[in-house]
Simulated scan of single mutants.
Amino acid sequence: MSSTRRAPALSPSRANDYSQCPLMFRFRTIDRLPEPPSKAATKGTLVHWVLEHLYNAPIGRRSPEAAHALVPNALTAVQARTPDLDTMFESEADKKQWLAEAGKLIDRYFTLEDPNRLEPAEREVNISALLDGTMRIKGIIDRVDIAPSGAVRLVDYKTGKAPRPQYSASAAFQMRFYAVAMREARGVTPAMLQLNYLGDSQVLRNEPTEADLDQAKGKIISIWDDIRRNAERDEWRPRTSKLCGWCSFQSICPSFGGTPPELEQGASAKVWLEPPTLFDRSMSEIADDPAS
């Protein structure tokens, strides 16, 4: 592996971070401040692992029982990624309840789709592309289905509830972000984007047009341009909203009386102004990119 510092890559989650609050974006991508593990997010990781590996079983054997049998291995995989996992729980009973909630989400999946009628073309797909030759985007798509007609469907599992209409733009943008990356990297325009919400058994589908993806691409480029301007100035201002209540950085946010850590001069440029000269590196390296 080359020792050259990797160029930055913008993912849907980081693009959403920036749109929500540039200062939070800085804390996560430049300062790389630690955040306490989240029960909800870690539960989602466990459920995603189960649904990915469920499709290793042959058609006819993809049952709720088979899915639940994967939970111990999924928990081992999650613990490997989150060594301090057990610190989230107040007691063994608390952890047992958390696992029970994950089990309910797994069961709910089978009310949305019959996995025995599906044969995904790809699962947990790392996708990366360049926009305008200078801006790298990337993401991990939960599932790619290809119909006999050749039509492509991108599927994402959500372990929460479907958002209210006024908060649905973020999820829709995430899926179009993936679709833009797929089109730019592979020359394929997905025929359908699908969100499976396990929290309340809702399935949201969208059939994007080329114009829709052009618009999404323009938005991504606009976010990239804004990030670059902030990086050139080392200036990341907070943006308050109702979502601040869930932010783990409130104690150091000036909007709440806190003081951010001092940013070394040029630190932003080192992370976000590096030219994308290493585009031919492997997908595993892209997945581990420090700007993810």
Rank of each mutant, 00 (worst) to 15 (best):
R28Y: 02
R28P: 00
R28C: 04
T29E: 02
T29Y: 00
I30C: 00
D31M: 00
R32L: 09
L33D: 02
P34V: 05
P34N: 07
P34M: 01
E35C: 06
P36Y: 11
P36G: 12
S38W: 11
K39T: 14
A41Y: 11
A41C: 02
T42W: 09
K43I: 05
G44P: 07
G44V: 08
G44L: 03
G44W: 02
T45H: 08
T45A: 13
L46R: 03
V47R: 03
W49N: 01
V50R: 01
E52A: 13
H53A: 05
N56M: 08
A57G: 01
A57T: 00
P58N: 06
I59P: 00
R61N: 12
R62A: 05
S63W: 11
P64I: 05
P64L: 11
E65T: 09
E65H: 11
A67K: 02
A67H: 04
H68L: 08
H68S: 08
A69N: 11
A69P: 04
L70V: 11
V71L: 11
P72Y: 05
P72E: 04
N73R: 12
A74E: 00
L75Q: 06
L75T: 06
T76F: 03
T76W: 01
T76D: 13
A77D: 10
A77V: 03
V78M: 07
V78E: 06
V78P: 02
Q79I: 08
T82L: 10
P83S: 11
P83Q: 13
P83F: 13
D84N: 14
D84C: 08
L85H: 15
L85Y: 15
D86M: 14
T87N: 13
T87S: 15
M88I: 14
F89W: 05
E90W: 07
E90G: 15
S91A: 09
S91P: 05
E92W: 06
D94C: 08
D94K: 11
K95L: 13
K96W: 13
L99Y: 06
L99Q: 07
L99D: 04
L99T: 04
A100I: 04
E101F: 07
